Computed example of a mutant assay.
Amino acid sequence: MTLTWPEFRRERRRSRQAWVLLAAAALAVVAGLGWFFTAGQFAVAEPPTDGPREAPVLAAGWMNPVPAVRPVPRGPAAALLDTLPVKGRAGREDYDRRAFGQAWLDVDRNGCDTRNDILRRDLSGAEFTGDPRCQVAGGTFREPYTGRQLTFRRGAGSSVDVQIDHVVALGDAWQKGAQQLTAEQRESLANDPLNLIAVDGPANQDKSASDAATWLPPNKAFRCHYVARQISVKAAYRLWVTPAEKDAMQRILASCPGQQTVVAAAR
């Protein structure tokens, strides 16, 4: 079949348009792959940041404050940070968890151990085993370090999925002044609700005994509160910070200049 000249021009124009569309599609695919293999894969993998921006300290009615070395002053966290001593780390060779007393004592004397107090405080719809309501059997919560919704179920293989983190790790505290505290003050530090949060088990293991210079919560929305809470704990127990740690804290607080200290007020 022989095409007329107008028909030939029409077909050639359609062919050009098709090639243009194919080229545009190919460029989009290449650009998409380039984005994914540079920054995109990390954006996709980054955990959600819609979790809590702060965490409670005391629950009204059944939690009691733990006596610290000194009260935490109310005010900007950045201002309190500037009052903390800045020094290098002390040695860790003689660190022993037992220096902070038996794990999960009932320091606030409310009849329940500290671990169950924190689970009950932080979980929604907490379920209990037995009476009084001390042993938490399950519940859900928006986990602060990752921002994910998690479920806690007590059990030999499941309890470790949700752990109670010392916001200022005891190993870090030992190297930054806790060696000079009395045995009773160290027990308070290890069981003070100000220094304790229920968190994702793997995130807690990843943190280990790190300070703010070497580890921060993946959930960026929680970092201002996290740093302010560390500052508040260190002020309450007369602990110091290293130069790198202070720099890291200042960088975080620069993004939230209105961030306040964290005090043990019932909520």
Rank of each mutant, 00 (worst) to 15 (best):
M1Q: 08
T4I: 01
T4K: 05
W5M: 09
E7W: 02
E7Q: 13
R12A: 15
R13E: 10
R16I: 15
W19L: 07
L22S: 09
L22N: 04
A23M: 08
A23L: 12
A26D: 11
L27F: 09
V30Q: 06
A31F: 04
G32R: 01
G34N: 14
A39M: 04
G40E: 01
A43V: 15
A45E: 15
P48V: 14
P48S: 12
T49R: 14
D50M: 04
R53T: 13
A55D: 15
A55G: 06
L58G: 01
P65I: 07
V66S: 10
V66N: 09
A68V: 14
R70L: 07
P73E: 10
G75H: 07
G75E: 04
A77Y: 02
A78S: 13
P85G: 04
K87Q: 10
G88E: 14
A90C: 02
G91M: 08
G91D: 15
D96A: 03
D96I: 02
D96M: 09
R98V: 11
A103H: 06
A103S: 12
L105S: 11
D106S: 00
V107N: 00
D108N: 01
N110D: 03
D117R: 14
D117A: 09
R120S: 11
D122H: 00
A126K: 00
T129F: 11
P132E: 13
R133W: 10
R142A: 06
E143I: 03
Y145S: 04
R148I: 04
L150N: 02
L150I: 05
L150M: 12
R154F: 03
A156H: 14
G157K: 15
Q163M: 01
Q163V: 08
A169H: 01
L170Q: 08
D172I: 14
W174V: 07
Q179M: 06
A183F: 12
A190H: 01
A190Q: 06
D192P: 06
I197Q: 00
A203L: 08
A209C: 07
T214C: 12
L216Y: 01
P217E: 02
P218S: 03
N219Q: 02
A221G: 11
F222M: 00
F222K: 00
R223W: 09
Y226C: 04
Y226H: 08
Y226W: 08
V227N: 00
V227Y: 00
V227D: 00
R229I: 10
R229N: 04
I231H: 13
S232P: 08
K234V: 13
K234F: 14
A235I: 13
A236F: 06
A236W: 06
R238G: 12
L239T: 08
W240C: 07
W240D: 00
V241E: 06
V241Y: 09
V241P: 12
T242K: 02
A244T: 13
E245S: 05
D247H: 14
M249G: 07
M249W: 04
R251F: 05
I252A: 02
A254D: 07
S255Q: 13
C256G: 02
Q259I: 03
Q260A: 13
A264V: 08
A265K: 03
A266M: 08
R267T: 15
R267E: 15
